[in-house]
Write a protein that binds this DNA or RNA. Structure first.
Length: 868
DNA sequence: GTGTTTCAGGCAGCTTTGACGGAA
DNA sequence: CTTCCGTCTTTGCTGCCTGAAACA
């Protein structure tokens, strides 16, 4: 908004004051919108259009608090005069403003600053929430943060995965593992039943710690976790992966990448941490905290008990040297009972005792005879139920009781004995779940964690396996980053992942790394690296499985989901420019609406718009849809032209589908003549839009070259720019016949060279001229100084200097005298930048005896400058 | 109490082919 | 005289998003 005239400073001040007032009034959290309506004083004020709208609303809410500050501004508005009703947005009009206005206002404001006037009712506008609307910039920023966060989490996953390949970690785990459990590595085809005992063992021997060990490498943390038999969920997940890999099984570390929201402001409500806390509060308000926040999950609904470990309690003491004792102590701490002596036994206490028993049993297992182990093994095998939690009563207490909390990481192991070709099996050590991938989504949903990205890490690579765990894909698809970018990021990682072999890292390191007392390690290393070729097939099979899941998503159970569903659509939610073609097959019904595959939805465009894609309308095709266009602009224009165009004809948009189009067939360039459109130009939306035999040269001012050579050309219109309330075509370069391309480019290069040469010559001439003028003025000054050096004639000298300046000005040389007297060249140089460039290539010599500095420039001129 | 649907309001973004005057 | 270049001025419709209310 620009004022018509800004002749009076006072007017500007008033305008600023009023605008400030409005800004403050409309600012979020301000006390409603107070009416600035002293119509008696209303004169002429201008409000921005939107402010005006808000202002109108504010009128209805005249109640509220007026502070002294407001009064100050109100007074300001009064003195300026404000017309609150019929203000013309575009017009500024003059109004008298006293010169003392500002000071008067300030003085008055000082007096009233602390004055508060209270109204009875709360302003209505206060009740209206400030609707946050993200700007394009906000969205862009949020997307960047989202992407960076994703990359960081990917990197983290790779670190964890790398640590799982660590030889020492694997060997340490193997050394702890009872021998009967390590036999799984000898099995030809592994099934879920074979894996379950391993999980039970892990759960029996390791417990969850709340706080991650800070400032350590993940490998060190993992080693520490083995030592202390206690780790974070992430560490436990990694330990399981390491153990499985040590047993020559193919395993991956899987993690939910719980990234910052893709949409700005969404994290306010979506903050995972906050939500989790909130969920916990609401769901487990009465529970005893037993398992730390981030690691707890309901592994199996029928077994959930509500014991939550207090975070402060679960902070553990230093690990003990005696493993058994250590286990006991740690277990005691886990259950929060180590210091309890009140004698009351709570449910958690019972669990603790069970946990302790389990821990002792697990340790004892290592020393038991093979016969006993065999018995035990068999018992465990039979206890394990397929697809359910492996936890029996004892095991459920080892890590902790379960409740609904988001799972964040787990393991996947490839079971070659499952299905026909084998399958990846979900393995959650924290909750003791195996092959229960279908429960992950529900658990995540219960704790309001979005399953946006579930990524499996192996061999330094990563693979998106979200499809396996997320059944309601439509709920997360809009919350994921563009698949183009995501696929691009994952492409190299996927290759690494699919090429990897579970124990390859081990075999890679085996030769150069042989730790002492590590028979377990050698055992593992010998079995590592069975076949790598099977992994390509395995990966392909998994891809197929995931793709199948993507195509067989169940129909959503709410209408809104069909709006932007990737697979299904209902006619009701189609956009204006969309149509079902072909209209079928119907894949189901929702609330009486037939559901069609999304592939049937075709986007329609105008003929012109299809041209952008290098497509043209086939012959005899009629528009599939005709949309009415209420273009005021067009109406005015049409009526202005005098002819009364039939409204329908001129204001309808004829839309066509892609199936009605064929590749653009433009006339071929003949005899060096470029085929042009009705405007004498070529619309270059893309390379496809170029007539055959022509080429687009995107160089500024190239047309002058073509013209000089008499070569036929057409301006290349590359798009539109919206300025001055209308679309303006944007031209970039020209379109010429291919045969002239080289000629034109050569000529352009020559011309460019000439232009540069000309420019250089002009600069030199300019420099010489300025040097000449400078020297002339210096000489004049020197001669004047010699002649009128006498102080008594100072006045006369001044007048002469003034005359010299006049002459210098007339010669386009700025006066070097600003502080009276004649200045030396050095000073004039620093003061007058217009002269500076002539010294650029100078050589400077200094005579110490005479204190005279001589400057010589390339043009051959030299100047003597006395030192001050 | 929770989830879904509908509706209204507001904003972002797409729309898409001069006229004129001064300088070179 | 012609050509080039910069400036003028700042739309209006549509779809998407959001919150609120009604409803199941």
């Amino acid at each position: 908004m620009k004022p018509k005239s800004e002749s009076k400073d006072g007017k500007l001040a008033v305008r600023e004051a009023v605008n400030k007032f409005l800004e403050r009034r409309n600012a979020p959290g301000s006390q409603g919108k107070k009416k600035l309506d002293d119509t008696n004083n209303a004169q002429n004020c201008d409000f921005p259009k939107r402010d005006k709208g808000k202002y109108e609303k504010g009128k209805q809410a005249a109640e509220g608090k007026l502070t002294g500050k407001d009064l100050e501004e109100r007074e300001c508005g009064r003195s300026a005069g404000c017309d609150d009703d019929e203000m013309n947005d575009s017009d500024w009009e003059d109004c008298p403003v006293p010169s003392h206005d500002d000071t008067a206002v300030d003085a008055y404001a000082d007096e009233t600053r602390d004055l508060t006037i209270e109204f009875d009712r709360v302003p209505e506008t206060k009740r209206q929430k400030n609707v946050y609307r993200a700007t394009a910039e906000d969205k862009e920023r949020a997307e960047l943060v989202h992407k960076v966060h994703l990359l960081c989490l990917l990197a983290r996953g790779r670190i964890v995965d790398n640590a799982c390949n660590d030889l020492l970690i694997q060997a340490s785990l193997l050394s702890l593992l009872p021998s009967y459990l390590s036999k799984v590595s000898n099995l030809e085809s592994v099934t879920v039943r074979d894996i379950a005992p391993l999980l039970r063992w892990v759960r029996g021997n390791f417990s969850v710690r709340c706080t991650p060990s800070s400032e350590k490498s993940f490998r060190t943390s993992l080693a520490f976790a083995i030592e202390s038999r206690k780790g974070t969920a992430e560490e436990l997940g990694a330990l399981v992966v390491a153990l499985l890999r040590a047993l020559n099984l193919t395993a991956r570390f899987v993690s939910i990448l719980d990234v910052a929201s893709l949409k700005p402001g969404a994290d306010k409500d979506e903050s995972p941490g906050r939500n989790r806390a909130k969920t916990k509060q609401s769901i487990f308000r009465n529970s005893t905290l037993m398992v730390p926040k981030q690691q707890t999950i309901s592994s199996s609904p029928n077994k959930s008990s509500s014991h939550i470990k207090n975070k402060s309690i679960c902070e553990t003491s230093e690990p003990q040297h005696d493993p058994l004792q250590e286990k006991m102590v740690n277990s005691s701490c886990e259950a929060g009972m180590s210091t309890k002596s009140d004698g009351t036994r709570r449910k958690g206490d019972v669990e603790f005792e069970m946990q302790l028993a389990m821990a002792l049993t697990a340790t004892a297992d290592n020393q038991q005879s093979p016969k006993v182990n065999e018995k035990k093994k068999r018992r465990e095998m039979t206890n394990t139920s397929y697809g359910l939690s492996v936890s029996d009563q004892v095991m459920s207490t080892a890590i902790g009781s379960k409740k609904v909390e988001s799972p964040l990481c787990w393991a996947e192991v490839y079971c070659s004995g499952e299905n026909m070709d084998g399958k990846w099996v979900h393995l959650d050590p924290v909750n003791g779940m195996i092959d229960a991938e279908q429960t992950v989504e529900a658990a995540a949903a219960a704790s309001k964690t979005l399953l946006r990205y579930v990524v499996a890490f192996a061999g330094g690579g990563a693979k998106d396996v979200t499809r396996r765990y997320c059944i309601k894909w439509h709920t997360i698809s809009s919350k994921r980053v563009s698949s183009l970018w995501w696929d691009m990021v994952l492409a190299p990682l996927r290759e690494l992942e699919s090429a990897t072999v579970g124990g390859s890292a081990l075999s890679k390191h085996r030769e150069g790394y042989a730790p002492r007392n590590s028979s377990s390690l050698n055992h593992v290393a010998n079995k590592a690296c069975s076949s790598s070729s099977s992994f390509g097939i395995r990966s392909a099979l998994e891809d197929m499985e995931l793709a199948t899941r993507a195509l067989t998503e169940p129909l959503p159970t709410n209408q809104q989901a069909y709006k932007s569903h990737e697979l299904y659509a209902i006619e009701k939610w189609l956009h204006k420019n969309q149509i079902l073609h072909p209209k079928g097959p119907v894949v189901g019904f929702f609330s009486g609406h037939p559901v069609y595959p999304r592939t049937c939805v075709q986007t329609l465009r105008t003929k012109q718009r299809w041209l952008h894609d290098g497509l043209q309308l086939k012959a005899n095709e009629v528009p599939v849809k005709i949309l009415k266009r209420n273009s005021k602009l067009k109406k005015v224009k049409d009526s202005g032209d005098g002819d009364k165009v039939i409204e329908e004809g001129s204001q309808c948009m004829e839309l066509y589908g892609k199936w009605q189009m064929e590749p653009l067939c433009l006339p071929h360039a003949v005899n060096g003549i470029v085929p042009k459109n009705e405007r004498g130009q070529v619309d270059v939306w893309s390379e496809k839009c170029l007539p055959p035999g022509t080429v687009h040269i995107r160089i500024p001012r190239i047309h002058s070259v073509a013209k000089r050579f008499g070569i036929d050309y057409a301006p290349a219109m590359v798009g539109f720019e919206y300025r001055s309330g209308r679309a303006n075509p944007v031209y970039e370069g020209i379109v010429v016949c291919t045969e002239f391309k080289d000629t034109i480019l050569e000529a352009y290069a020559e011309e460019q060279e000439k232009r540069e040469e000309e420019e250089r010559r002009r600069n030199e001439a300019e420099a010489a001229s300025r040097w000449y003028q400078l020297l002339l003025s210096i000489l004049t000054r020197e001669s004047l100084k010699n002649r009128y050096a006498d102080n008594s004639k100072e006045v006369e000298t001044r007048s002469l200097v003034a005359k010299t300046e006049t002459v210098a000005k007339a010669e386009n040389v700025k006066s070097p005298t600003k502080q009276g007297g004649v200045k030396r060249g050095r000073e004039s140089r620093s003061e007058d930048e217009s002269h500076e460039h002539v010294f650029l290539d100078e050589q400077e010599t200094f005579d110490e005896e005479t204190s005279v500095k001589t400057k010589r420039c390339k043009c051959g001129f030299s100047v003597q400058v006395e030192q001050m």
